[in-house]
Design a protein around this nucleic acid. Structure first.
Lengths: 338, 338
DNA sequence: TTGAAAGCGCTAACAA
DNA sequence: TTGTTAGCGCTTTCAA
């Protein structure tokens, strides 16, 4: 039924070795004539090499695995695009899975990737499976961790400068005349990003003459259905707030919902700066000021680094790449009119 | 270095056969004692079966491939979620790639999937590689086509009822008092969906007492940077238009941009109904009336059908599943005030 | 209940 | 330049 390398060899009257060489573009040991002959029979028989057999023999599959934690957030779609494009360019295929922030699923998928002998793994970790990540690194399994840092784990990272992003956003709000600024953030002690963004907020206030008593921090429960209600309560109880710095694009949507419901005007009643540039941000009325993260670039660099460490003979020193976010100023944070 | 089934066998003083049976949960031929012994050594040695070797032998990989055409559109993220979850539930892993609507890339990826012996393929086709799809079907390669129909190709489809979705949306606009309704659509003669949505628009007008002379159809170039300009021109040249039926969520965003720029008020100056419910639709001001497509369900049914046809001995008759869209009414199409 | 042995399709060291 | 041969790690038939 299936055409194998043996069928081609027989048909072309050469050995399997010769066919193998030609299939793999290794023409150095072959006359032009046999090359042509073999190429022709390959075409005639519509021969397709079996990647499983090849992988079994060569212990390399040219497949990479990626573990994401949330498919809904469009930021990850951008990262995935970068990953996918780069894989294609460099001749790799991609296995994808979604841990949905659950430890067990993450562990199961990593195990699965190893069983399938993927050449390397890109992961946005739940952060909580420390032994799992550590194990991978100890066994020298090619791995790049993206977006989140894992405390005290030496590894290859591609992450964003979250402190700087938040700092820039909050300072912009101060510069446009806001004095009472709140930050909205998910509570999750494992994810460094969110703490870093709050840290950026704190720093911006402190370095601009404010004190810790000016901090206004609202922590929200990520999985909750009641996020908008929490935001409504908060805004009603703190009518002096002039601006919200939102650390996540899903939170931003809920803020906008709450603002609509309260009949507030943006930016006069409340200015908004939001993390993550999205497809829709510039189409809102008024358009949203956002902090754009280079997600595509993150995906690209992760794959490039991964493939580099796959190809390297000896273990490389772990490296951390930090990417810079960029503030995109739009009308949701226009200068305050006095 | 790597632990193989042989290492386990040696360590446990049994044959490879016995280990193989136990690894695969086949305990029928084994005493409780050897089972325990083997299970223990597997754990001790941290043995991981090699999926490549297994696949080579059993000619089945438990991997599915999916070819998407556009990662940016959040509709596809939803579909992907359905696909991913269902794969996980049914014990399959997923390879993903993005054709980006390009024929050559689509063909290359399909070839790659076959080389890797994925057990089946889910595809949102560019529609233009007819021979490629036909070839797959002739060779009885498990395949499910989602979202788009390919003319005169008998295959397994999971698609949406686009005529009905558009019909419902346009009729809703008529019912709320609009008489001059335009439809905005991408021009692409290959994609049935868009033609079907225009068809739904036409039908809704005709069945409600309008004639072909009332049709207002704006075709837009998908890859163009000038979409908003085209929309602006159109709206300025046709000031009598009371409502826009947008067949795509990206077009909708451009319409909103144009509306903001012209200073029009929604829904009084212009009502909007848009294809595809999105994360952001309900947070706009005013919230958008949309047509929700069951993308998650589409992904789920595609995978379930695919696995069914993988497991079936004899070839099943091709089946087409049509999913129903749902109109979500919000303020962007509020009743017209006279 | 257990195991020996053949072979899945391919690669590569070595020989010719 | 070309081919022979020995596996890669696993499953499975058949025999013990």
């Amino acid at each position: 039924m299936k055409i194998t390398i043996g069928d081609v060899a027989k048909e072309a009257n050469v050995s399997k070795t010769t066919v193998s060489r030609i299939v793999n573009g290794n023409y150095a040991h072959t006359t032009e004539e046999t090359k042509k002959k073999v190429l022709k029979t390959i075409k005639n028989l519509d021969y397709r090499p079996n990647a499983l057999a090849k992988g079994l023999k060569s212990t390399t599959t040219n497949v990479l695995g990626i573990v994401l934690s949330n498919l809904k957030n469009p930021f990850w779609t951008t990262v995935l695009e970068g990953v996918e494009d780069t894989c294609r360019e460099l001749g790799y295929n991609l296995m994808i899975c979604n841990s949905n922030e659950e430890l067990e699923i993450e562990a199961e998928y990593i195990r699965e990737f190893r069983t399938r002998r993927v050449d390397g793994i890109v992961i946005n970790p739940t952060v909580q499976n420390y032994d799992l990540y550590n194990n991978l690194i100890e066994e020298n399994y090619p791995l790049v961790i993206v977006n989140r840092r894992i405390p005290s784990l030496e590894a290859n990272y591609v992450v964003m400068d979250n402190v700087k992003g938040a700092y820039t956003g909050v300072e912009h709000l101060l510069n446009t005349g806001r004095k009472k600024i709140a930050v909205f953030v998910y509570q999750n002690s494992y994810v460094s990003n969110w703490q870093e963004r709050v840290e950026g907020y704190r720093l911006a206030l402190l370095r601009n003459g404010y004190s810790t008593s000016d901090f206004r921090i609202l922590e929200l429960e990520q999985r909750s259905e009641r996020i908008k209600d929490c935001i409504l309560d908060y805004l009603k109880n703190n009518p002096d707030i002039q601006a919200v710095f939102s650390t996540n694009n899903m939170i931003t949507l809920e803020v906008l919902g709450a603002v609509n419901e309260m009949g507030l005007t943006i930016p006069d009643d409340l200015a908004i700066v939001s993390y993550d540039e999205t497809l829709w941000a510039k189409y809102f009325n008024p358009p949203l000021t956002t902090i754009r993260q280079p997600g595509y670039k993150m995906g690209q660099l992760a794959v490039e680094g991964l493939i580099k460490s796959i190809n390297e003979e000896k273990k490389l020193d772990p490296s951390t790449i930090v990417l810079e976010p960029e503030l995109i100023i739009r009308e949701s944070s226009d200068k305050l009119q006095q």
